[in-house]
Design a protein around this nucleic acid. Structure first.
Lengths: 218, 218
DNA sequence: TTTGAACTCCATCAAAGGGTTGAGGGTGGT
DNA sequence: ACCACCCTCAACCCTTTGATGGAGTTCAAA
């Protein structure tokens, strides 16, 4: 070949998907999968070991989220380039991943060609964000951020707690809980706690995983 | 080979995943992928055309859901065998797919070996349901079913509507709305509407898709 | 130091939510 | 005909929620 292959790391917890990606990429001229990881911790280890040019990474990962992985690696290697790959696209995930330094964001369901051309583009220093994603990102830019405490309260709301229970849980007065709720309702652009809960889930501010019963698999 | 290959149809909307599955299965001795489909309608067409022994099918599909596909095909061909493949596992999805006649239920993230052995097992007439899934299925068996009207109300709750709004929307009195809410709270085992909303989403009774803004892609 | 943002708390009040009981009408099955 | 189940509605009562406005604290940035 005329020049070196683009070294790619694939981080994806779903086994068949990862295998599919690797198989797909390895037959492409000019690409080379140098490592694989099935969770966040492993991803960092593999990154350090192989120093790939491009890291293809899912956001939903066991042990350490994709966003966390991106952040940590970029602290060590600010030039690291990431292409985020995900099935469901909460506004919050998009925002955080791009904030953390991802260069591109692809929904699963893209074609192989899209994937490959995106890898090449990112390797060439470009960014790539699909119109639909860019639009939603723009929408969310306008919205205000929740404060940490508001986020705590929102989480409790999603868990179905009453104001009194939240007060006990967070060890603050019910009045304070109400204050937080009032401001987060405004920021989310909703009018009651139920809407806040569904909006939070919908936007990916609170994940369904944290709702589920303790899990053994996955 | 000593006997004919098991003819498999792969139904999965995510391109790379489908491609991965096909590539994976085609190299396995005794398996043969005879068709692929990216949505429900196509799945039925492919089934009719190829009459596969096993259909690997995702539940979340464009145009026609996996459950619908299973139901329709089984009406024509009651002996059709399905292995359901999905990422997220709402109780409701599991229940409906198995009710519809699926023989096995696999979470993505399984290993290739698990997949292959499951295909062989199902082809041999066995069923295969992972312990975690079986347990959750058992849980949900105990729970009572929502009546159609209760479901309507629950949907509205998830959409953040107030009782008054629900009453108007469904053209019934607010008192009736309360009655339905009261019984569905009991059936879901929760104590208020916010919990009902998150529980509904969590169990897959109401899907997030129906929440989202109208979508262009996917 | 001043300013601002975040967190904390209080009091008050109207509106909405939720529990309970009871009850009439409709449909489908036995 | 009877029973079971669903859908419908009403009246009563208590609790929770959300809105509003004010106020003290801390802490970091300007």
């Amino acid at each position: 070949m005329t020049q070196e292959s683009i070294r790619v790391l694939v981080v994806e917890d779903h086994h068949v998907v990862r295998q599919g990606l690797v198989a797909l990429l390895n037959v492409v001229e000019g690409l080379e999968v140098v490592g694989e990881a099935a969770d966040g911790v492993e991803a960092i280890a593999q990154y350090r070991k192989h120093q790939p040019a491009i890291t293809l990474i899912d956001l939903r990962l066991p042990r350490l989220s994709g966003v966390d992985v991106i952040q940590r690696i970029r602290m060590e290697t600010p030039t690291a380039r990431f292409i985020v790959l995900t099935t469901y696209d909460g506004d919050e995930d998009i925002y955080r991943a791009l904030q953390a330094g991802a260069r591109a964001y692809l929904l699963k369901g893209m074609t192989s060609d899209e994937l490959i051309s995106t890898i090449r583009a990112v390797h060439a220093g470009k960014s790539h964000i699909p119109p639909a994603v860019a639009q939603r990102l723009a929408e969310r830019m306008g919205t205000e951020e929740l404060t940490p405490r508001e986020f705590d309260v929102l989480e409790q709301i999603v868990h179905g707690k009453s104001n009194k229970e939240i007060a006990i849980e967070l060890d603050i007065s019910e009045a304070t809980v109400k204050t937080h709720i009032n401001s987060l309702l405004g920021k989310l652009g909703v009018t009651d706690r139920t809407q806040a809960a569904t909006a939070a889930i919908q936007r990916g501010i609170v994940t369904l995983e944290s709702l589920r019963k303790p899990k053994n698999n996955e």
